[in-house]
Amino acid sequence: LQEQTQFRKKRVALHQVSHLITMALLVSIRSSISSLILVISLATATVFPAHAAQTPPAMFVFGDSLSDVGNNNALPDGFHANFAHYGVDFPGGVATGRFTNGYNFIDVIAQHLGFEQSPPAFVSVSRGDNPVSKGVNFASGGSGIMVECMDGTAKKCITMDEQIDNFKRVRTLLEQQLGSKDMTNKLVSNSLFVFTCGGNDLNNFFDKHSFLFPFAPIDEYVANLTSAFNSQLRELYEFGGRKFAVINVPAIGRIPTARALDVLNIIGINFERVLNGYARKFNEAEAAMLRGLSSTLPGMKYSIGNAYSVIMDVTNNPKKYGEIN
């Protein structure tokens, strides 16, 4: 059992979901199935109800491999996606650091909102390669709300707290570029803050506590996780963020490495059900936390993109989207 759970290293634990979500988005566009793009874009559509005519001035993206567009490329020992066959369907067939075969769903959301391109990775901004007035992507593959990104002396990813610190640096750059603190406040308050996080946290919890099933302290862990995320959102609110799009945790029991554990069902544990149960429990707690937070922070707007339902629908009904399971 221990060997099987080690198979679910965070290097691969959530990365395959990026392809599944992106595939769902792109198939929906090709097939003119608007419902799926609206489901995954719920966060942006609700925060910006007239988004077709009102593109937010900028997007600031935080999270994990579902959103990373190349930040991990700068980490010598990090989780990487800058090699074949990543990027085979990206323009030019280039592996950019996105943990998928082409565009990731942040790219699709940006296009859907009217941006010419997805916000650049923070690593390129910090080198001075890109302007920041249209937003920045801070996401890092392997990261999470409370994920520790160090493996001994090796830095594997960029923690959420570090991503928020990087946003503060970008905010300072914005003030310099715009020439006014008031103009910066206006841009940031009208911008969209997008999050994909929690999946790696839950996978790591499963790796650590699977031997305790069904007595693993998941309720306590989910409470700690939502409390930490609450604090992170409050910090961004204090630095001007007002519009938050949160993509909930996908059905992590359906990713390939989780399905590999189906062979252990013989011992009476349905690992897909366990992992999906963790995801649903966190998603419910996250939704309740966001309701409470928005009621206490004046001007805060949020919505939740239901990635869990997207993954379940695509994997339950692949033919509906022109795919084969």
Rank of each mutant, 00 (worst) to 15 (best):
E3T: 14
Q4M: 14
L14E: 13
H19D: 14
V27E: 04
L36Y: 06
L36I: 09
L42Y: 12
A43Y: 01
V47T: 13
A50F: 10
H51E: 05
A52V: 08
T55D: 04
A58L: 11
F60E: 03
S67E: 05
D77P: 03
G78K: 00
A81D: 07
N82V: 05
G87F: 02
V88Q: 12
F90G: 04
G92M: 07
V94C: 05
N104P: 09
A110L: 13
Q117R: 15
P119K: 15
V125Y: 00
R127S: 08
P131L: 15
V132I: 13
G142I: 05
S143W: 02
A154R: 13
A154G: 04
K156T: 09
C157L: 09
R169S: 08
T172N: 09
N185Q: 09
L192Q: 03
S227K: 11
R234F: 02
R234D: 02
E235H: 06
G240W: 12
F244S: 01
A245E: 01
A251P: 04
I255E: 15
A258N: 10
A258P: 13
R259F: 06
I266M: 08
N270Y: 09
N276V: 05
A285H: 03
E286K: 02
A287I: 03
L297S: 07
K301M: 13
Y302E: 07
Y308S: 12
P318T: 10
I324R: 11
